[in-house]
Design a protein around this nucleic acid. Sequence first.
DNA 1: CTGAATTTTCAGTAATTACTGAAATTATAG
DNA 2: CTATAATTTCAGTAATTACTGAAAATTCAG
Lengths: 204, 204
Amino acid sequence: MNLTPLAQNFVLHFGEMGSRWGINRTVGQIYALLYVSERPLNADEIAEALNFSRSNVSMGLKELESWRLTKLQHLPNDRREYFSAPEDVWAIFRTLAEERRKREIDPTLSMLRDALMAAPSNAEDRHVQQRMREMHDLIEMATMWFNDVQKLEPETLQQLMKMGTRVTKFLEMKDKLKVVAGGRATSTRAADAETPSTQPPQSN
Amino acid sequence: MNLTPLAQNFVLHFGEMGSRWGINRTVGQIYALLYVSERPLNADEIAEALNFSRSNVSMGLKELESWRLTKLQHLPNDRREYFSAPEDVWAIFRTLAEERRKREIDPTLSMLRDALMAAPSNAEDRHVQQRMREMHDLIEMATMWFNDVQKLEPETLQQLMKMGTRVTKFLEMKDKLKVVAGGRATSTRAADAETPSTQPPQSN
DNA sequence: CTGAATTTTCAGTAATTACTGAAATTATAG
DNA sequence: CTATAATTTCAGTAATTACTGAAAATTCAG
């Protein structure tokens, strides 16, 4: 297992990039290797290709598994485990986003929600809560939107993205239709989103 | 400068979260403090509130500045510099996304582009390039979309997000209109996006 | 200019995170 | 079962990153 310069370069880049995220170099490189590999690889092959210790590879794979970014399979007449990356880049993208949301967004959202439940005991806290609420509402909206979008077929999503901001044209159109039709157009989700859940009792 | 438990909690949470990203604990806490603070703070106040050394605060502020997440101002009859976070959460969100794109996406995109320019020298590299191309195309599309969306007014964006996947209804509608109108509906950006720039000469 | 106030830099050190090799555990072929 | 192959764990160590205090540099009022 030695990599071509092309693959080598890709793998090294991902290692560097990985460390800009929370992910460490090792994990980034392992993932990149699996991603470009034509066939599933076993841990020893990975260790050899990347010059890592066998145990390091084991840990890296475990980490990738926790991100749901690897597939595990067995080959006939071979006891070893073989790893590969999902082929569909859209699926990878989605998994990554989901997992990041779970780890980075959800805890923050729940912390904010909790903090907003309590009545502020003074003017200072009132302002702190105000700021927290602004952040909470934005994150919550983005999260809900993301949830929706996640359900779309990659093709639909792709189509939407390629349209770019042109969708706003349809928004305007919608508004006109609403007027014409006397407000009977399909309602947006705006109403649902405006729950008062983050509006605590004001203590003044 | 001592924080209320509410603010304290927020600041600590952000410190933890920061370290899940590339950002370190110190920087996360400083930002959180500025974010909830009612008034701009100088470096000494920050150092005292968070129990960091003055020099650590100086470095943290420099880091935040490089992310364009702080505003700097002066108070009358005071030589010290006062820092604050922008008030508009949408603007913050956008700046953050922009900056992350610049640091994490753009380098990857350009590495991929370069790698896809060269003619593959064998079957293995052909496959590697195929995978790289898939990744490149997805990232490029997402980036272009993001660029577009970034130009929208926060209100429009908010409206779009609240609609969630309902916009797809309009997509379908558009397709029908197209058929009815004999293909004279506004074109999407699909054509522009399908540049052959990442299709290198095949060497076989 | 001068000197005090303020900010930045940086070498040294502390703390954290990454990595290894050896040993323990688990899985499976015979 | 038993023996061996494969994987995981983990204590120790290496490497990296974060933080501090002291000194240098910068800013600015007088």
